[in-house]
Amino acid sequence: MSNVVETVKQVVKPILDKHTFYLFDVEFVKENKSWYLRVYIDKKGGITIDDCVLVSDELSEKLDEMDPDPIPQQYFLEVSSPGAERPLRNDEELQQAVGEYIHISLYQNLNGQKAFEGFLRSVTSDELVLQNDKWGKNDTINIPRNLIAKSRLAIQF
């Protein structure tokens, strides 16, 4: 079904460009007996419900106009935000997250911990630098990239 995903990416790109949104991800999956086409979009400052409705309406119209139909089976179209705690999957997303509050999970302990939260201050090919005032006078930590299992945006409490 990657053909469906690639087709949808091509169809949705001009719609997103027009509204200064960007594509986070597309998935076409079967859950129980139903197919779901999920399009995750974002923009600086975050996506609203109205933004999702706008893209859903325009994308649905474009897909309905296509002949032959790129998705012959019945499916549900869902357009949404990737979420407040979305994963940071690559260098580009990490660079965009500089200044944001993030959560990092590690493969092994670093300073007695396997997880850290703080403000991402910098990203290099070798490490990420996090800052958190709760850590006391050592309020920054350099985390080697090879120790990082996962990283995501986080909500600060």
Rank of each mutant, 00 (worst) to 15 (best):
M1K: 10
S2I: 14
S2T: 14
V4D: 05
V4E: 08
E6H: 13
T7V: 12
K9W: 06
V11Y: 03
K13F: 11
K13P: 07
P14H: 09
L16E: 05
D17F: 03
D17V: 01
T20W: 08
T20E: 12
T20Y: 08
F21I: 00
Y22T: 13
L23M: 09
F24N: 14
E27W: 04
F28I: 03
F28R: 01
V29Q: 08
E31M: 07
N32E: 14
K33T: 15
K33Q: 15
Y36R: 09
Y36E: 03
L37W: 02
V39M: 01
K43Q: 10
K44G: 03
G45D: 00
G45F: 03
I47N: 00
D50M: 06
D50F: 05
D51H: 02
D51A: 02
C52F: 03
L54V: 10
S60N: 14
L63W: 05
D64S: 13
E65C: 14
M66F: 12
M66S: 11
M66K: 13
P68T: 10
D69P: 10
P70H: 11
I71Y: 08
I71D: 05
P72E: 11
Y75P: 07
F76T: 13
F76A: 09
G83D: 03
A84M: 14
R86D: 00
N90C: 11
D91G: 08
E92A: 15
L94V: 08
L94P: 07
A97H: 01
V98L: 05
V98P: 03
G99C: 06
Y101A: 03
I102E: 01
I102R: 03
I102K: 05
I102G: 01
H103I: 10
S105V: 06
S105A: 10
L106N: 07
Q108I: 06
N109K: 15
N111A: 15
N111I: 12
Q113L: 15
Q113W: 12
K114V: 11
F116K: 02
F116L: 02
E117L: 12
F119E: 11
L120M: 06
L120F: 01
V123L: 00
V123N: 00
T124K: 00
D126N: 13
D126A: 12
E127I: 00
V129L: 10
L130H: 00
Q131V: 04
D133R: 11
D133N: 12
D133F: 07
K134Q: 15
K137Y: 09
K137D: 13
K137G: 06
I141N: 02
N142V: 13
N142W: 10
I143Y: 04
I143Q: 06
I143N: 05
P144T: 07
L147I: 09
A149I: 04
A149F: 10
K150C: 01
S151A: 15
A154F: 12
A154Q: 12
I155S: 02
Q156H: 10
F157W: 13
F157L: 13
